[in-house]
């Protein structure tokens, strides 16, 4: 069960604002985390606490294929991202590095910045403890669940190549 305070953003949050290209030449997760969301919310890195939850609208993570984006969010301490929808490369990247993401348009619309939420990744249940509302995100397809269960894409493939 994940538990944290919400940072809420709008639609089309792109990877250039999640981690600007001027920091991509410093690919250590800790270094990337120092600049996470800098161009959309300069205060984010000062306020975020381990376990906090990012909530956003449609097409989260659009733009560049930089895996530095989910890495930066994960390294900043955020425990999961809930969005109305995800851009496809960000979606793949998050799965591949084992970073939890949930697609739930209703939660994305109703949850507000500063709310306390708890998230059960096994059931997809999202509880807004501030308002008392509960939301349900769809579980990932079994194939993707299997990749996550193996510990990410490389572990999944290693298993397969060795067989």
């Amino acid at each position: 069960m994940l538990n944290g305070t919400v940072f809420h953003y709008g639609d089309n949050v792109d990877t250039d604002v999640i981690i600007p290209a001027r920091y991509l030449n410093a690919p250590s997760p800790a270094e990337l985390a120092k600049h996470c969301m800098e161009d959309i919310d300069a205060e984010f890195v000062n306020k975020v606490r381990p376990g906090d939850v990012m909530v956003a609208g449609w097409n989260f993570g659009c733009g560049s294929s930089r895996e530095h984006a989910p890495i930066a969010i994960q390294a900043s301490g955020v425990s999961c991202v809930i969005a109305a929808s995800f851009a496809r490369i960000f979606y793949r990247n998050a799965i591949n590095i084992g970073f939890p993401i949930l697609e739930c348009p209703e939660a994305a619309e109703k949850i507000r910045s500063g709310d306390r939420v708890s998230v059960d990744l096994t059931t997809g249940e999202i509880q807004d403890e501030t308002t008392g509302e509960t939301f349900h995100a769809a579980a990932p397809p079994a194939f993707i669940g299997n990749i996550i269960a193996k510990g990410g894409l490389l572990a999944y493939l290693k298993d397969k190549v060795n067989r």
């Binding site: 294929s65 895996e67 490369i89 590095i97 493939l157 190549v161």
Partner: peptide
């Protein structure tokens, strides 16, 4: 299609991807 770095690593290792 564009992918991330883990996908690239997987592609380099296995010559396939999902």
């Amino acid at each position: 299609t564009g992918v991330g770095s883990t996908d690239m690593a997987a592609g380099m290792a296995a010559g396939e991807n999902w």
